[in-house]
Design a protein around this nucleic acid. Structure first.
Lengths: 206, 206
DNA sequence: TGTACATCAGTGAACGCGCGTTCACTGATGTAC
DNA sequence: TGTACATCAGTGAACGCGCGTTCACTGATGTAC
């Protein structure tokens, strides 16, 4: 039955690829449409399939959304992890700016944060998944904080910094009157202020 | 026509009162229902009138939501303003905790922040209203920061602190596993960390 | 005081819409002999 | 190689639902004479 198993593996692989295509489409729609207009039909259209087909790969809308969000967050974690593995001064600044850049570039991310905040009808398993990925992000920030020789409850500091950066984004990314570049500059400026409060400039050049 | 005018004034006053009742109902529904389930019909039911009646007082749903949000925010501004008029050490701490307490108690507020973030199809006039009330909040924080003898770009600091507090709330108010009291304690702890980063303890007891 | 008319808040029913999801069915591909 | 059957991704159409909003109408109240 080796041949049979190989066939099955291939089939499973194809299935995974098709899932990815749907997830790609979902992100694309999330990124280009106001959240209220994101629907199974739109995502299906973007993926070039019928809405009914989505249900071959995801049990329901919530699962699709969650998985899409998790994939994005894993992306962030990978980026932050890489930075936290580095050494030298300005590590936390670098991470902070990377985080702000990412969530600005990928509107999907913040839209989904807000979504899961507003419609938290998630089952326990989903909540667990969300929690563990959030812990992973926090781990990265904490590592950077520790490496910056900050003294105190570093986990709490990581919480505070992480929350602050989210807040900066949410509060100002729709700042009326200004647009694009300006908003990003403002957010980065605020982010650096936060960052430097945690790691006084003294520590950067000891 | 004095009598006529008086009648008209009374009628106008009654009209305002009826508007208030609808706004009260809206807030009540916002506070007790997941956002996705907030609808004109529910608000009407809460107010004890028919859904159609709402349109006698508000042109459409968005106006109702916005006005509801503005009323809440004016409430916050009043509270913060009162605090910022005080003197003495720990002013900023006091304000910070008051803000966190308020937005925790009134889930309406944060839900709406997220709403206006997600569905920003507002017309210019609405955006203007949102902006000016946000400036009023920022004014309060800046005043407190100045009174705490912080040196630097106090406006930017106000931005950063305000955004951070919003972020703390949004990031942790659904913190899985913990509930109610614990979450509030955690948020307040983080808020105080933020606060003390801006106003080092030295400044509190000079 | 009585009567005819005007005003206007309030209503139930309906309109049109888009949604998430289901289902009977198609059609391509793989399997068995 | 050819044939009958099994599997399964994919589909269009439909279901049932709740939404925001509109509208013709009611009924209470105020106004004019």
């Amino acid at each position: 039955m080796t041949r049979g198993k190989t066939f099955n593996k291939l089939r499973e692989k194809e299935r995974q690829l098709r899932r990815e295509i749907i997830l790609d489409a979902a992100e694309c729609v999330f990124a280009s449409t106001p959240f209220s207009q994101v629907s199974m039909r739109r995502i299906a259209k973007e993926a070039g399939i019928s809405a009914a087909s989505i249900y071959t790969y995801f049990p329901d809308q919530e699962s699709l959304f969650l998985e899409s969000y998790l994939r994005r967050t894993k992306d962030i974690v990978a980026i932050l992890k890489k930075i936290s593995d580095e050494h030298g001064a300005g590590l936390l600044e670098k991470m902070t700016l990377a985080y702000i850049s990412y969530i600005t570039k990928q509107d999907v991310y913040s839209t989904m944060v807000a979504h899961f905040m507003l419609y938290s009808n998630l089952n326990m398993e989903s909540v667990e998944k969300l929690n563990s990925i959030e812990q992973a992000v926090l781990d990265c920030f904490e590592t950077a904080i520790i490496k910056s020789k900050v003294i105190g409850n570093t986990r709490l500091f990581a919480h505070a910094l992480f929350a602050s950066l989210n807040g900066i984004f949410i509060t100002f990314h729709n700042y009326p009157g200004r647009k694009g570049e300006d908003v990003l500059r403002h957010m980065k400026r605020l982010a650096l202020i936060m960052c430097n409060l945690f790691v006084p400039v003294d520590n950067h050049h000891p």
